[in-house]
Design a protein around this nucleic acid. Sequence first.
DNA 1: CTTGGACATGTCAAGACTGGAATGTAGAGT
DNA 2: ACTCTACATTCCAGTCTTGACATGTCCAAG
Lengths: 173, 173
Amino acid sequence: MSLRHAALGLLADQPGSGYDLLKRFQTAMANVWSATQSQLYGELAKLEKAGLIKVTSSGPRGRKEYEITPEGREELRSWLLSPLSAPPRSEMLLRVYFLGALKPEQARAYLSAIDDSAGQRLARLTALESAIDWDDSDPSLYGHLALEYGKRLSAMQSEWASWAAARVKAARA
Amino acid sequence: MSLRHAALGLLADQPGSGYDLLKRFQTAMANVWSATQSQLYGELAKLEKAGLIKVTSSGPRGRKEYEITPEGREELRSWLLSPLSAPPRSEMLLRVYFLGALKPEQARAYLSAIDDSAGQRLARLTALESAIDWDDSDPSLYGHLALEYGKRLSAMQSEWASWAAARVKAARA
DNA sequence: CTTGGACATGTCAAGACTGGAATGTAGAGT
DNA sequence: ACTCTACATTCCAGTCTTGACATGTCCAAG
């Protein structure tokens, strides 16, 4: 139910075609939400039918430019204000739970791999942060907050993983 | 595709019925993975058909006790060793992205709510940690690592949210 | 002038997941 | 004897998501 709101949110910032949105999902939103093309076009059709967005102009190659309607903005706001349930689902953690099925060295290798990939992600996000020129618009402010979250998460994961790897090692002593 | 492995992992630790597993999903695994009853029973049937688990005994009320097979253990190990892709999907973060659609006070309220709920979660996990008596078995070790991850994540979220709320406040000055 | 890459949308099958309803048994306490 | 709770499974309709396939157009570089 959230892709709907992701699309709405992107259109609230600025109008665009399905193709435009798709690119935004693959770049700016890549660290936050993913969507395939089939899903996105389908959702746009539903949103239009529901009157939350509308086509404002048609361009070359059948391009349809969508714009959010006042009803759409209302829906977006009410979603943002609705209570958030935190559905816990982390494949990474699930695996940690069952690491006992592997040999201790393999378990440690898994944890080290997490450490590495989190470290790389942190580096990537830090680079991204310097590459973007942040102005003082809303999308810029909130995008920056989200990026900072990603950085802190990566740092925490990396630290936790190396701590956990040490614990596994110690337990075998 | 992960519920399959979650069920397999639980059965690798000890045999049990669908009902037993369901309780474990609602307690020990509650912070890691969720599954509904319909999904779980369906998956158990598929796992049995695939020969990864088998029924060892039938108890009262049609109870079927499942046990993991050697093939099942093999599947579990190979899953644990397979590369992990990190699919980014966080409704919480998605909302942060679009907070510009709300009035600044409302945006700050959202961030404060995150701070609060993360704080509560941390308290809950800390209480849980003292309540459990950890032995030196594998499930205990890895369960403990997972719990520690939850604690660190909650602490980080709480700190980030209060920092972010302050940033939003400052931006309006 | 032609060709390849970016632009642009649509459709489909299959699997994952949710929420709910239906059904019934065993055993513990009164 | 009764009744309530915990035990225990099965089925279903509907939505979400993925991955693949299908189709076609515009435009710039060579």
